[in-house]
Simulated scan of single mutants.
Amino acid sequence: MTSTRRLSTVILPIHRWHNGGRALWARAEELGFHAAYTYDHLAWRTFRDGPWFGAVPTLTAAAASTERLRLGTLVTSPNFRHPVTLAKELITLDDISGGRITLGIGAGGTGFDATTLRRSDEEPWTPRERADHFDEFVPLLDRLLREPSVTQEGRFYTANEARNIPGCVQRPRLPFAVAATGPRGLKLAARHGQAWVTTGDPKLFESGTPDQSVTAVRGQIDRLGAACEAVGRDAAVLDKILLTGFTPGRPLRSLDAFVDFAGTHFDLGFTEIVVHWPVPDSVFALDAEVFEQIATEALAQLR
């Protein structure tokens, strides 16, 4: 198992670029974060009635404003994306960034992304339908990012001589970080992922305990290992990413609390832990001084 321990952040796309947005991404690089991600949604939860910008344009601007910081989505989904158009945007973004892009990708959920493009008489996809789309989406996107020309007619997605020249800067393509906890998603992570993403067990967020959460996450890692073994792949080659903010307890209340939390999860096998950039008066509210302490001091205490 790799001993890599990285700390990253996710910056919600809620900031006007010339009124503080650009400065946040530059500051993320200054603080030494491994990567800075953003959400890829049309709208999201309580932020729906405020500013919310597109993920790909935001990452493009961030790529032009940073030099070393890895960038990516947490996560993109088929809810409103098509593999052909997404591939073109990702290849462009990978080029502009000089090969610093990671695609976080998942099956999507039941929020506004699931309904915005549907007629009022259309039901959102069921969990099975989301999984069906994801099963087809990921392998086709994989091909589109690797091959200069792709023709494929599927149940949900078609590519007819889709050209993607010159391809990604990162070879054979930019890395996928697959968000999954169910068997079908874990199989996709095992086959196509360079990383795996989890937020923990959502059933435990409101009423579970930190110990229960650790047990649940350990079980997810075990199931990922079994999925990798089933396809003849060593799970140790996949990075394992934990997006914080959705597990019981308050691990970001202080530097010491975060160090304890991060140490426990690194010991489980995670290679990267992601913390939300503070957003005042929201679920991601956090003292700015504590956040910067975590960014600059936590990993040193964990070595």
Rank of each mutant, 00 (worst) to 15 (best):
109 G>F: 00
234 D>H: 13
65 S>T: 13
268 L>F: 04
214 V>L: 14
272 E>S: 08
215 T>D: 15
112 F>R: 13
82 H>S: 14
213 S>H: 07
10 V>R: 14
106 G>C: 03
68 R>D: 06
137 F>K: 07
124 P>C: 04
201 D>P: 03
26 A>K: 14
243 L>G: 01
138 V>L: 07
228 C>H: 07
290 V>F: 11
133 H>R: 15
2 T>S: 15
35 A>Y: 04
134 F>I: 03
213 S>R: 02
115 T>R: 12
78 P>A: 08
131 A>I: 01
100 R>A: 08
51 P>Y: 09
239 D>T: 04
217 V>Q: 10
116 T>P: 01
26 A>L: 12
279 V>H: 12
266 F>N: 05
149 S>G: 08
203 K>V: 02
193 G>M: 08
41 H>W: 09
200 G>L: 01
248 P>M: 05
33 F>R: 09
112 F>A: 11
52 W>N: 04
59 L>M: 10
10 V>N: 12
276 H>N: 14
22 R>Y: 01
254 S>V: 00
298 A>E: 05
54 G>P: 00
180 A>G: 10
248 P>W: 05
86 L>I: 06
184 R>V: 01
149 S>F: 15
216 A>G: 05
195 A>F: 06
224 L>I: 04
30 E>C: 04
203 K>E: 14
74 L>W: 08
203 K>N: 14
87 A>M: 08
156 F>M: 03
213 S>C: 06
236 A>C: 14
267 D>F: 00
292 E>K: 12
22 R>I: 02
267 D>H: 11
126 T>D: 08
168 C>H: 03
74 L>M: 15
57 P>N: 12
219 G>P: 00
218 R>L: 01
58 T>M: 13
84 V>N: 10
85 T>D: 14
63 A>V: 04
20 G>K: 12
156 F>C: 00
279 V>K: 10
58 T>D: 12
1 M>I: 06
215 T>C: 00
205 F>M: 10
209 T>H: 05
56 V>T: 12
237 V>K: 13
277 W>F: 11
22 R>D: 02
303 R>N: 11
186 L>H: 10
229 E>A: 15
230 A>F: 01
208 G>Y: 08
190 A>H: 02
85 T>Q: 15
299 L>A: 14
264 T>K: 10
250 R>L: 03
74 L>H: 09
123 E>M: 15
182 G>Q: 12
49 D>E: 13
210 P>K: 10
301 Q>C: 06
121 D>E: 15
182 G>S: 13
44 W>P: 01
33 F>G: 03
191 R>S: 09
31 L>Q: 08
297 E>R: 14
138 V>D: 03
24 L>E: 12
130 R>K: 13
289 E>N: 09
146 R>T: 14
157 Y>T: 02
170 Q>T: 08
75 V>I: 15
46 T>Y: 12
128 R>D: 15
235 A>P: 12
67 E>G: 11
289 E>A: 15
34 H>V: 03
74 L>F: 11
128 R>H: 10
163 R>Y: 13
31 L>R: 07
174 L>F: 06
137 F>P: 03
72 G>R: 07
113 D>C: 03
273 I>N: 05
192 H>V: 02
31 L>K: 09
79 N>A: 11
169 V>G: 02
299 L>M: 13
51 P>L: 08
127 P>Q: 10
